[in-house]
């Protein structure tokens, strides 16, 4: 059969791409499958069972860690989204002014420094503050998470602002809306998808964090990821797989929602 010349084709690229996708998903698939294993081992398949999910659900340490993860993520994402939205408003749609570059650098700083470096730096500072104040609650974790969530929340809000037609706000002002009313009635509603996207990104980023949490947490403040990290040092049962699977499902859910919100408003 004659093959027409395809300008986009590159020999072997499609094969490598398929291999890549298989490599990306195979380990996750195996992890999920073994979460349903009847037996205690991660090596032999002994039949389908939900017993490890039940075990995870009855494990108080897991429940507490999961709850703590959600609480921290909810607070950190909320604070980060508010701060990032304000910062995005302050740093877009303007001529260059003194300090603008400084602001960009500050906001993106958490993305540029290796997590482990920030983690130990926070360990140094917070351990001292804990001694001084005697407070050792979740506040430290929430503060640290808020800081590294800000650049992630900032990104979609800023993108949304930069794509927004400046004439819309001019039009509102032209139609007798004061600056505050223009913000409330025009800017904020139009910004909303970006804010929602920013919140979701921040939430996932906070939920996923291992390194900074591991170094900042006080005793008994395990989040789900640090709890799992601890478990990996011991003999692993499919219970870890079950926890990971649930965690995975939550992440996929949020990312899917994010994907569709972004697509719909593109």
């Amino acid at each position: 059969m004659a093959r027409y010349f395809d300008v986009k084709r590159q020999t072997g690229f499609a094969t490598i791409a398929i291999v890549t996708f298989v490599l990306l998903y195979l380990p996750i698939a195996i992890l999920v499958i073994y979460a349903f294993n009847e037996g205690e081992s991660l090596a032999n398949w002994e039949g389908f069972s939900l017993r490890w999910f039940v075990a995870a659900a009855n494990n108080d340490a897991v429940k507490q860690a999961a709850w703590r993860s959600l609480v921290i993520a909810a607070f950190a994402a909320t604070f980060a989204t508010i701060a990032a939205t304000m910062a995005a408003l302050a740093t877009t749609r303007t001529r260059r002014y003194r300090g603008l570059t400084f602001k960009y650098a500050m906001i993106n700083q958490p993305l540029m420094v290796p997590e482990i470096v920030t983690a130990v730096a926070l360990l140094i500072v917070f351990s001292q503050v804990k001694v001084w104040t005697g407070y050792s609650g979740l506040g430290y974790l929430i503060l640290a998470h808020t800081a590294f969530c800000i650049p992630f929340a900032y990104l979609p809000v800023r993108a949304r602002l930069e794509n927004m037609d400046l004439a819309l706000e001019s039009a509102a002002a032209d139609l007798y809306a004061t600056p505050w009313k223009t913000f409330r009635r025009i800017t904020l509603p139009l910004l909303q998808p970006g804010i929602v996207a920013g919140f979701m990104l921040a939430f996932v980023i906070s939920l996923d964090d291992v390194v900074i949490t591991e170094f900042v947490k006080s005793g008994g403040q395990d989040t789900l990821p640090t709890y799992m990290l601890g478990q990996l040092r011991r003999v692993i049962t499919p219970e870890v797989n079950a926890i990971a699977t649930l965690f995975l499902a939550l992440s996929v859910l949020i990312v899917t929602a994010f994907f569709f919100i972004n697509r719909q408003k593109a």
Partner: peptide, 8 residues
């Protein structure tokens, strides 16, 4: 406005 600037 040239772009109409209708509130979407």
């Amino acid at each position: 406005f040239q772009s109409y600037a209708l509130f979407p």
